[in-house]
Design a protein around this nucleic acid. Structure first.
Lengths: 220, 220
DNA sequence: TACTTTTTTTAGATTAGTCTAAATTATTAT
DNA sequence: ATAATAATTTAGACTAATCTAAAAAAAGTA
């Protein structure tokens, strides 16, 4: 069984590698793990010895099959718990991350099975991120940043990419939420900010950075 | 903030001391913590330095005010989670202990507040044990072991005292549950076993040990 | 290419929680 | 009251995860 820390490393490697596509460097891992590069080196050696990752000195690490499976289990648990916190306990979407970071490490297959059922088998979490199924399969829906969506066409907000609490609070304040219907009314040349309409009801301006962090799909 | 292990020690001390009444010896603590007496000595020194317990060499430990507060918070969380697992997720009462042992250590005041509300402020857990309120107050209802209850008078099953999974499974199998109405029909001289009627529907024999572990209150 | 800078690794130390073995204190029984 | 036994503590060591400082390798630049 994996330790709390080992689980967190695997999860971080999964995210940083973009689901296992590219190698992850010692320094970036140190950054996201809030630790020192020397500590990372020690840990990746351990995970490598456990056949969970492929580690080559000075090059970086990559998830091996089993490491990816473990990472996806943790992500599954994290996202199911976030869904529970919002849908059942009435947390807001900016409050759930820290608590889910703890809950994701609870060891009980039965618990996750029953939680999944209780939530009626959700496929996305409150931030629009897909929830891996029990076998670790993830249903990726192709989405594009709002910033790159054509103007005047209606789209649906599907997810936030890297949603920090303050960004999420800001979105709530301006009335943007998952499944909101949005269209771009104007694009400001100077800074790339956008004027958008939300649900055909209100018009607001959002920055280019914000629009890069909002993932959308076209409407039928 | 307390570590996982420190929390478990405080909880164990609380239970072994019978809510703080009597001192707890190193060996009993070692037994329930599944560890060695030498390790206990180290830990109680640490908890003593943190002013959570009063430790006197060769004599034992007692909870101090703050230690008791901490212990009751953990017990509150444990029992709320057990209630959640049974009432919302459909666990059986014999399946919840291990999982709740993990969940009780999640650090989030907001979570427990919201969980309590979601469960509609329960006062007892699935084993009939009282749930401390947010301030740590516990509402003790005076109960007596079924083994000591007078015959032919109706009583209500209120709690199991130290309910191991196998005992709980046994109770379910013979149809005994919290709030069941029971009366003693016969007491066997030889071994102290009892013939009892459950809900006026069925009659069964239970051992003296079992009857000692079932806490009841008289019916109006 | 050779020098400088950055990144990464190694070596050795630290902390929390645990252990074993030996020493000490308390309890029990004669 | 004293010897035997049981309980407890101390001393020293181990593991996991971390750290700092120094060494080594890779990358960038003149």
């Amino acid at each position: 069984m994996l330790s709390y820390t080992e689980e967190n490393y695997l999860k971080a490697i999964y995210h940083l590698s973009n689901a296992g596509e590219r190698p992850v460097l010692t320094n970036e891992l140190a950054e996201t793990m809030q630790t020192k590069p020397a500590s990372v080196t020690d840990m990746v050696k351990k995970l490598s010895a456990k056949q969970l990752i492929d580690y080559e000195k000075y090059y970086g690490v990559k998830l091996l099959k089993q490491g990816k499976v473990e990472a996806l289990q943790i992500i599954r648990k994290h996202r199911l718990w976030e869904t529970f916190l919002v849908n059942k306990l009435g947390f807001t979407w900016d409050e759930v991350h820290e608590v889910a970071e703890q809950l994701e490490h609870i060891q009980s297959g039965l618990l996750i099975e029953k939680l999944d059922k209780f939530l009626e088998y959700p496929t996305v979490d409150p931030h629009g991120h897909p929830i891996p199924d029990p076998s670790g399969k993830i249903k990726e829906i192709k989405q594009v940043p709002l910033a790159e969506f054509p103007p005047f066409k209606k789209c649906t907000i599907r997810a936030v990419k890297d949603g920090s609490p303050s960004f999420l609070q800001y979105l709530s304040k301006i009335g943007i939420y998952i499944d909101a219907s949005v269209s771009i009314l104007d694009r400001v040349e100077f800074d790339g900010s956008l004027e958008v309409s939300i649900d055909n009801k209100k018009r607001i301006f959002i920055s280019r950075e914000a629009a890069q962090n909002l993932m959308v799909t076209a409407q039928a």
